[in-house]
């Protein structure tokens, strides 16, 4: 099974997950500080900062891209409810 690693910097927890996992699927289970609103990529509440490893995330969908722009996102921002980790090691934190 292809795997990936994600470090949630705010609580110092690193998880190993199957490639293709969305961050929303693990962040709440471990108590990371990413918070969610609609969980469907519409509200922008779960915007997070990718500290390193953004190249290991799937490219934003049209929907995610639109919401990021509406929320004045920076280049390092993604939505945790939408972002899928494809491999490698990604480090994230809230914001």
């Amino acid at each position: 099974m292809p795997k990936a690693q994600v470090t949630f910097e705010d609580i110092g927890v690193t998880v190993t997950v199957p490639a293709g996992t969305r961050l929303i699927e693990v962040s709440e289970k471990i108590g990371a500080g990413l918070t969610y609103g609609c969980r469907e990529g519409e509200c922008g509440t779960c915007m997070m900062k990718i500290v390193t490893g953004s190249e290991h995330l799937a490219t934003p969908s049209v929907l995610e891209d639109k919401v990021l722009k509406e929320n004045y996102a920076g280049v390092a921002n993604r939505l945790a409810c939408q972002a899928q980790v494809l491999g490698g090691h990604v480090v994230v934190r809230p914001g």
């Binding site: 099974m1 795997k3 609580i11 110092g12 927890v13 690193t14 998880v15 190993t16 997950v17 199957p18 996992t21 693990v26 471990i30």
Partner: peptide
């Protein structure tokens, strides 16, 4: 320890 930022780094293998 979380409150004061001194929690030891942890690793959880969700594939296990």
């Amino acid at each position: 320890e979380h409150l004061v930022g001194r929690v030891a780094p942890r690793h959880i293998d969700f594939t296990a």
